[in-house]
């Protein structure tokens, strides 16, 4: 494992921030441009994961284990959120026979 940790010795913090920002923005573009509810959900997962990666990098940069524990809690939360969200999507599909989000506009008024 020692040789693996030498890999990161030469990467600036900025490059990790840029990578996470790019993936976060890809997630936002996915939420804005797709209409399938499950694909939108997957884009949200992508955004959560990019933030997780950045938290881990900051935790290593500051030499503080609390950041990684926080990432662990975010993962537990994401699991709960996915279970409830997919149950809601299944219920919507059973009632309207579609998961197109443009059908779900009754709260717009």
């Amino acid at each position: 494992m020692q040789n693996m940790s030498n890999v990161i010795q030469s990467i600036p913090l900025n490059h990790y921030i840029i990578l996470s920002a790019i993936i976060f923005c890809i997630g936002i573009i996915g939420v804005l441009t797709r209409r399938n509810a499950i694909v939108i959900f997957m884009s949200v997962e992508l955004m959560l994961n990019s933030v997780n990666l950045l938290l881990t990098v900051f935790s290593i940069y500051r030499n503080d284990a609390a950041g990684q524990v926080f990432v662990f809690f975010v993962m537990a939360l994401a699991a709960a959120e996915v279970a409830v969200g997919l149950a809601i999507i299944v219920m919507i599909y059973r009632n309207t026979n579609t998961i197109d989000i443009n059908v779900l506009n009754r709260l717009k008024w």
């Binding site: 030469s10 900025n14 840029i18 290593i60």
Partner: peptide
């Protein structure tokens, strides 16, 4: 819209200047 957010984030990062290298101080951390 997504591209504008990305440009804003990266521009604010550029303004904040050069960053240090990520160094693993304690190999047992993770």
């Amino acid at each position: 819209a997504g591209g504008c957010l990305l440009v804003t984030l990266i521009a604010s990062l550029k303004i904040s200047g050069n960053s240090e290298i990520v160094v693993l101080k304690d190999p047992n951390l993770g």
